Simulated assay, not measured.
Amino acid sequence: MTLLQDQISAVSDVTPAERAQRLNDAGAAWNERIAADAGSAQLTYRVSGRGIGSVATEIRAGKHRFIVDEPSALAGDDVAASPVEYALGALVSCQVVVYRLYAQALGLTIDEIEITAEGDLDVRKLFGIDESGRAGFHDIRVKVDITGPDSPEQYENLRQVVDAHCPVLDLFAGTVPTSSALV
């Protein structure tokens, strides 16, 4: 069995009732924590990485480690997903979390959810060929496939709520003040 299969089997044994309880418990705990100390709502995430191989990176995020690489056409060894694929993966996974969270809060049922994100990127800026365009995605399309007993209108309302509250979608849709410094 591969590492991915091990990871999937570790999380796939959650029943809808267990998921609902965990979502309710987490929401209640955060509401209590923030009510007692508004400053507890402010979180700082730290991720670091070091270059390995041709252009790969070993990422350290808390207790987790993973590799990011590029395909051979971009000088990589193609041993892992690329940075932009991880970015789209972050968007998809954040959407799944927020869909589950708000479906629970709104009393909706999600039997199955699958989200696909597709992004268009022009590499001319990356390679210094044309400085006029964006270095990142210039268009991203997110498709959400939900099955469940609720009406299409209720799921559309859920989509609007999710899009307004998804932290990673906010990163893509808005400008985040970012600084860079050599140390």
Score class of each variant (00 low, 15 high):
D6A: 15
D6R: 14
D6M: 13
Q7V: 11
Q7C: 13
Q7A: 15
S12R: 03
D13M: 04
V14Q: 06
T15D: 01
A17R: 12
Q21N: 09
R22N: 02
R22H: 00
L23P: 00
D25S: 02
A26T: 10
A28F: 06
A29Y: 00
A29V: 09
E32D: 06
R33A: 04
R33C: 00
A36N: 11
A36K: 12
A38I: 05
A38Y: 04
G39C: 08
G39H: 05
S40W: 01
A41C: 09
Q42E: 14
T44Y: 05
T44G: 12
Y45I: 07
S48I: 10
S48T: 15
R50F: 03
R50S: 07
I52V: 15
I52Y: 12
I52C: 12
I52W: 11
G53A: 07
S54W: 02
V55M: 10
A56G: 14
E58P: 08
E58C: 03
E58Y: 11
A61Y: 13
K63L: 12
H64Y: 12
F66K: 00
I67N: 01
P71I: 04
A75Q: 12
A75M: 14
A75Y: 15
G76A: 08
V79D: 00
A80H: 01
P83V: 03
V84N: 09
E85T: 06
A87G: 12
A90I: 04
A90C: 09
S93T: 00
Q95N: 10
V97W: 02
V98R: 04
V98M: 09
V98F: 07
V98Q: 12
R100E: 01
G107Q: 09
L108V: 06
L108S: 11
L108E: 11
T109K: 03
I113F: 08
I113N: 05
E114M: 08
E114R: 08
T116K: 05
E118T: 14
D122I: 09
V123K: 03
R124D: 13
K125E: 09
K125W: 01
K125S: 04
F127L: 15
F127T: 11
D130W: 03
S132C: 08
R134L: 13
F137N: 11
D139A: 13
I140E: 08
I140C: 08
V142W: 07
I146M: 06
I146E: 07
G148M: 01
P149L: 03
D150F: 01
P152M: 10
P152C: 10
E156I: 13
E156L: 14
L158Q: 05
R159Q: 14
V161M: 08
V161R: 15
D163P: 04
C166E: 09
P167C: 04
V168K: 10
L171I: 15
F172G: 04
A173T: 06
G174I: 00
G174V: 03
P177F: 00
T178K: 00
S179T: 14
S180M: 05
A181Q: 10
L182M: 13
